[in-house]
Write a protein that binds this DNA or RNA. Sequence first.
DNA 1: TATTGTTATACTCTATAACTATA
DNA 2: TATAGTTATAGAGTATAACAATA
Lengths: 147, 147
Amino acid sequence: MLTTMPELSHGDDAVNALRSAVMRLSRRLKHQRVDESLSPTEMSVLGTLARCGRATPGELARKEHVQPPSMTRIVAMLEAKGLVRLEPHPDDRRQKVVTQTEQAEAMLEESRRKRNAWLAELASGLDDDEWAKVRAAAPVLEKLAQL
Amino acid sequence: MLTTMPELSHGDDAVNALRSAVMRLSRRLKHQRVDESLSPTEMSVLGTLARCGRATPGELARKEHVQPPSMTRIVAMLEAKGLVRLEPHPDDRRQKVVTQTEQAEAMLEESRRKRNAWLAELASGLDDDEWAKVRAAAPVLEKLAQL
DNA sequence: TATTGTTATACTCTATAACTATA
DNA sequence: TATAGTTATAGAGTATAACAATA
């Protein structure tokens, strides 16, 4: 499972900086909601559905690292807002299949524009080299979040 | 000097990947508490004090992007746990000065070890090149969180 | 008997509004 | 009058426990 020592040498400072930055950035992102009526996790679920196409509530709960009852609430909210559809699972009548609606796709597109405007403002505080580093790391951070 | 659409050309995909990764990583970090009795923000406040040495409640509220009443609660919690001290401000009798105790320093050191062990396990899923990108970006993310 | 999803309930964290004390 | 901090209260989001339906 755990390797010997080399992994720990990846850098204490970088690790601490990463943790601190992620926690604080996430707090700011929470405040910078593109759609006031949608929580960060609800947005994240829509993003996951946009990538995966479809998923069961249980799969979504595991992907988003929330407990099943929380995902029940979130999916119910999204359905009430017309952003997802719930259909019976073809093979297993216990499960359901969640898919996003066209309305959700349109909202995600609008969200993307607003987010970019906000980040463009932050970008003015970074130089090109710094932004290049962020761009290079972004896919890795995504992978890290999924591991 | 600048390209035509400087800010927005920083990359939609990278921006979306970053937001998604930050939100999901922060959720995982919340679960990976090194000290079960301390919330993420309480930990973050201790980290800030470790860097800054001392700060007033108002300064901490601004740095952590929470409202003053929330910081009042957080500081009171930390004081009750013996992790910070509150002293009167030398120049302004309205303000207070918050400093961390030796106990907090010891706890941060212990936390660092546990965090590294956890991240070492995650690290096994990344190659050296990927980790190099994370390390390069970490300080930039910290700056981003502070802007 | 194990698993998927739900309902009911409680807890944690944070915010807003109103208040006190000092500048 | 403005500012730093506090108190009281409410809201959002999540978790745990108990339950129903299906495998």
